[in-house]
Design a protein around this nucleic acid. Structure first.
Length: 428
RNA sequence: GGAGAGAUGGCUGAGUGGUCGAAAGCGGCGGUCUUGAAAACCGUUGUCCCAAAAGGACCGGGGGUUCGAAUCCCUCUCUCUCCGCCA
């Protein structure tokens, strides 16, 4: 959620910022400004009536004690009551519309980001070089199938397209990756959190998935409770709600969390032939990093998260690039995003393996996540940041393709071997 | 799944219709005393809306009754106890 004060004082700046993100919210913002004025008038009127009610009401016990006539006062109170009721009904209507519009506005992009979409993304650094093959490399689907690492057919049998089964050394390799990520984060002092994979509506609202992107997640239909629940699309959705409606102490910040979860996504209508295999599925494994920081610390935290994600990819020995996303390619909740993209030979291009973002106070406002600054004693919104560290569903194909040898076997990256009984080569 | 109990400030816990934003204790902060600390004593100590004053809101959430609700009613959520079932 954006700061209403900012919208009130700089509506044009907000409009321009959202334009840069590729969304036209001019009408919404104008309406919000109207509603804001109406809202404040209605609050003022209602509160004055309530103050009057409180004043008159105080006299009643005194008057009764003195044995006076209360009928005039009761009549007055009845009138006040009616007026308050009317005012409150109006206020509720205004606030409902106001709130839903406020929730629908995406975050503002950071100053200095290129406007526009994907085409304006800007690689800011490269690591390593594209591997040259002196034989015709196979794609990861064929390699994984031949080596028995992934069972796509039976995945589809169990759950339909977009699902697969990790088997044998494939499962070991996947698990080794997750262990490698987690151990690295633990060494960096992050707290490991294991989360529920089913979340309540509020979590999606805080993270910014809802109300706009409700169709992107899997909803549970078996719920008789009034609370709608869904399968988490990323651990971020849960981790950002961990401290929802809390006031943290300044000394508790920054909070640094990591979590491993499967991620469930509808990915409706997004299939492309080039994305076969496990590049885009309905369920994939990811270790997610989330930080809660003071506002002045979030830029440094962002760099830290980018650095951590890069270090993990480097550790695996991969060529990759880090890309600064243009304003319009950042997701709705985010002010700034860098993607780390790894080269996948069969796709002849780079694929995202990590996305690191700074939401600034956008999610904190939605989830009412604050901290008390020791110096002033005032509460302020925290900043939230997240980054994948990392998602395995692109890493494993990259390992398999980039580390393949002419005989169809693949080399296990050094850092993973200790999690796999020292296995160096996976062959037939 | 069945039966019951409960949700009050950072914590424990009083409060069953008016002067209650809420007793008391603990904790926190400040002070007195002390070389320093502890103890003792004194004072202070919730959040939010509002630029601020004034004012208003908040006793799990929502709704209702009432001139007036922490207190009565309805409903939802959550927690606990016992029984059943179960990884």
């Amino acid at each position: 959620m954006l700061d209403i004060k900012l919208i009130r004082e700089n509506p044009d700046k907000v409009k321009a910022g959202l334009q840069a993100k590729g969304v036209d919210c001019d009408r919404e913002i104008d309406r919000i400004l109207e509603l804001d004025a109406l809202r404040r008038d209605a609050i003022y009127a209602t509160e004055n009536l309530k103050a009057e009610q409180n004043r008159v009401s105080k006299k009643i016990p005194e008057l009764k004690k003195a044995g006076g006539d209360t009928s005039a006062i009761f009549a007055e109170m009845n009138k006040l009551k009616e007026e308050i009721k009317e005012n409150e009904a109006r206020l509720r209507e205004i606030e409902e519309e106001y709130r839903s519009l406020m929730l629908s506005l995406p975050n503002l992009p950071d100053e200095g980001l290129k406007p526009g979409g994907k085409e304006n993304n800007e690689p800011i650094r490269y690591f390593g070089e594209v591997r040259k093959f002196d034989f015709e490399p196979k794609n990861h689907v064929d390699l994984c199938t031949e080596l028995g690492l992934i069972d796509y057919t039976r995945g589809a049998k169990l759950s339909g397209s977009g699902f697969w089964v990790y088997r044998g050394l494939g499962a070991r390799l996947e698990w080794a990756l997750l262990n490698y990520f987690i151990d690295t984060h633990l060494a960096d002092g992050y707290e490991l959190v294991l989360l529920p994979h089913i979340l309540g509506y509020e979590a999606g609202l805080t993270a910014g998935q809802f109300p706009k992107f409700e169709e992107d997640v899997f909803w549970l239909q078996t719920d008789e409770s009034s609370q709608r629940r869904f399968l988490l699309p990323t651990a971020e959705t849960a981790l950002v709600s961990l401290h929802r409606d809390e006031i943290l102490s300044e000394a508790e910040l920054p909070r640094k969390y990591i979590s491993y979860t499967p991620c469930f996504r509808r990915e409706a209508g997004s299939y492309r032939a080039e994305e076969r295999g496990m590049v885009r599925g309905h369920q994939f494994n990811k270790v997610e990093m989330v930080q809660y920081t003071k506002p002045e610390d979030s830029d440094a935290a962002f760099e830290e998260l980018v650095g951590k994600a890069e270090a993990l990819v480097k550790g695996l020995g991969f060529h990759f690039r880090t890309v600064k996303l243009a304003a319009g390619d950042c997701s709705a909740s985010m002010a700034r995003t860098y993607d780390i993209e790894i080269y996948i030979p069969s796709m002849n291009g780079y694929k995202e393996v990590s996305s690191v973002s700074n939401a600034r106070d956008y999610q904190a406002r939605r989830g009412n996540i604050r901290f008390k600054r020791a110096e002033t004693g005032k509460t302020e919104f925290v900043h939230t940041l997240n980054g994948s560290g990392l998602a395995t569903s692109r890493i494993l194909p990259a390992i398999v393709e980039q580390n393949q040898k002419a005989d169809g076997s693949i080399v296990v990256p050094e850092v993973l071997r200790k999690y796999m009984d020292g296995i160096e080569i996976i062959g037939i």
